[in-house]
Structures are given as C-alpha cells and as structure tokens.
Computed example of a mutant assay.
Amino acid sequence: MNEQERRFTRGPVEVRAAGESRTIGGYAAKFNALSRNLGGFVERIDPGFFAKSEGDGWPEAMARYNHDDNMLLGTTGAGTLRLAVDGTGLDYQVDVPAARADVFELVQRGDVARSSFAFYTFEDDWAMTEQGFPVRTLLSGQLVDVAPVNTPAYLDTSTGLRSLAERAGAELEEVRGAAEDGQLARFLEPKPAATVIDLKTSESGGQGDPHPLLAVRQRRAELMRRRTF
C-alpha cells in the first residue's frame, strides 16, 4: 500500500518545557485503542506498527503543525524531534523554532490540544470485534510525521477499504458500497469449514457403495497393476 493515511489520538499535546527550548509533545498514536467509526469499520494500532521505522532510526520523520509543509516544527535528522515507543504508544517531543512561537503559544493556552500522525501501511489485518463490528489492525508501516492539530479529522479511508477488498477478492466499489450501507461484516464472515472424511471409519458412502475417495484409490491401483504387465 503506498497511499499516505492520517489518524489522530485523543491524547493531548502539551508543553513539555518552556523558556528557550519551547518544547511541546504528546502521544501521536496509542496502541490497541479502538478508533471511532471510520465509515463501517474501526481501527486499532498494533504495538509493533512502528518497529521498522524505529529500527531504521525514524528516517525523514518530521513534526509539522496541521501536517503543513510550510509549518515545519522539527525533524529527527536535526535532533529537534525526538520519538519514543512505550507500552502506551508513540510519544513525541519537538523543540518549536522561534519562527513558530505562535504554535507554542496556542498549545500553551490550550487552543491546540490534539495530536495526529501520518503514515504508510505495509501490513494490516481484518477481523471482527466482540460486538460483531469490522476492525482493521495496523500491523506495520512507516511514520511520515507527527503533528499538533487544530481540528482532529480522519481523512479519506479508502486505503483501508482497498485493503479489505484485496483480502476478500472483491471490487473496491463493492466494498465501498457495503461500507456506506454498514454491511462490511459480510466480507469477513468465516468460510465454511471443509468436510473432513475419516477413511478409517468410513470406507463406504453409507449406502453400500464404495466411498468416492476409496474408489479413486482402487482405480489408481488397477492402473498401476496393468502397467506392470
């Protein structure tokens, strides 16, 4: 999957240090917490989702106010953005530059109180919640940025629907239509289990006729016998 996605967390962004450093931070993502309804399904983030990005040293990860390229706050490369994964989620701290003192003030006053993160998904999985609602689990991906945001919003979730369509072998438009009707669960219904036949106890079809599998074996044995003569 190569489409960028964005999600926000209910955890607050806050001032971590004042004075010359002007550091703000918070949890950009929280593990195993179900999201709100994203249009027929919910999501959770697996604790291992950021493992590759972390292992690679958070390459090119940034902090941007409202995910805006023109509002860069810090980068991992310059050491002005620091990221850490713990049992709760992905925590970030960014030293806000003097040119973005307004962003620091907005966070300090509480006008900006939420965080978000942008990412690419490498691997996900689909299942059902205990309440029978479709849930997408984000298993691995790459972090693009973390961002304090004014109005947390889920953007287009078509990447998630495309993932489900590929899993179910269905057309994207069919899955999208099912999402609009609240019928995504039908793409996650378990397939009927294959019938297992025990030849030790069932060598006949129950009506006195040879079992079909036994008949195939007998036919193969007859062909092999003929080839030997």
Score class of each variant (00 low, 15 high):
Gln131Leu: 09
Phe117Val: 07
Glu3Cys: 07
Arg217Ile: 07
Leu214Glu: 02
Arg22Glu: 03
Gly177His: 10
Glu222Leu: 14
Ser204Trp: 10
Gly19Pro: 13
Thr159Leu: 00
Ala33Asn: 01
Lys200Val: 08
Ile24Lys: 04
Asp156Thr: 12
Gln183Ala: 15
Leu188Met: 07
Arg100Cys: 11
Val216Leu: 11
Pro212Ala: 14
Thr88Glu: 14
Gly205Thr: 14
Pro190Ala: 05
Asp156His: 12
Pro47Gly: 06
Ala61Met: 02
Gly48Met: 05
Val144Glu: 11
Arg136Lys: 13
Tyr154Lys: 10
Thr137Met: 00
Arg16Trp: 12
Leu161Val: 00
Asp145Thr: 01
Asp102Trp: 05
Glu130Pro: 02
Arg16Val: 15
Phe104Asn: 06
His211Pro: 00
Leu143Gln: 07
Pro134Met: 08
Pro192Asp: 12
Ala178Pro: 02
Ser53Pro: 00
Asp181Phe: 00
Phe8Thr: 06
Arg16Ser: 05
Arg7Cys: 01
Arg109Pro: 08
Gly208Ala: 01
Pro152Asn: 13
Thr159Arg: 03
Ala18Ile: 04
Thr129Gln: 04
Phe122Trp: 03
Trp126Gln: 10
Gly55Asn: 12
Ala170Lys: 11
Thr201Cys: 05
Gln142Thr: 09
Leu106Ser: 08
Val146His: 03
Phe104Tyr: 15
Gly77Met: 03
Ile45Val: 15
Val144Ala: 07
Arg64Lys: 15
Arg6Phe: 13
Trp126His: 11
Trp58Leu: 03
Gly169Tyr: 12
Lys52Val: 05
Gln142Ile: 13
His211Cys: 01
Pro190Leu: 03
Thr121Glu: 14
Arg220Met: 06
Pro210Arg: 13
Pro134Arg: 08
Glu3Gly: 06
Thr80Trp: 01
Asp209Lys: 00
Gly141Lys: 04
Leu199Glu: 10
Phe133Asp: 10
Gly205Arg: 00
Thr137Leu: 03
Leu199Cys: 08
Arg186Lys: 11
Ala153Gly: 00
Pro212Asn: 11
Val112Asn: 04
Leu155Thr: 05
Gly206Tyr: 07
Ala179Leu: 02
Thr228Ala: 10
Trp58Arg: 04
Gly19Lys: 06
Arg176Met: 06
Ala165Glu: 01
Arg7Asp: 13
Leu213Phe: 15
Pro59Asp: 10
Glu222Asn: 02
Asn32Lys: 07
Ala98Asn: 15
Glu43Ser: 12
Arg7Gly: 08
Val146Phe: 09
Asp111Arg: 06
Pro212His: 06
Gly169Trp: 06
Asp86Thr: 11
Thr129His: 03
Pro152Leu: 09
Gly206Thr: 04
Lys200Ser: 01
Leu73Phe: 02
Thr121Lys: 12
Leu172Asn: 06
Thr9Cys: 14
Pro192Ile: 05
Glu173Asp: 15
Asn2Arg: 10
Val15Cys: 12
Leu164Ile: 01
His211Glu: 08
Asn70Ser: 15
Pro97Asn: 10
Phe31Asn: 05
Glu20Leu: 09
Ser158Thr: 11
Asp95Gln: 09
Ala127His: 14
Ala178Lys: 10
Ala153Cys: 04
Asp68Arg: 13
Gly132Val: 14
Ala127Trp: 08
Asp56Val: 07
Asp91Glu: 03
Thr80Phe: 00
Thr9Lys: 08
Met128Ile: 07
Glu222Pro: 06
Ser163Thr: 10
Tyr154Thr: 11
Gly55Tyr: 11
Pro97Thr: 09
Glu3Ser: 15
Leu213Cys: 04
Gly169Thr: 14
Gly26Asn: 02
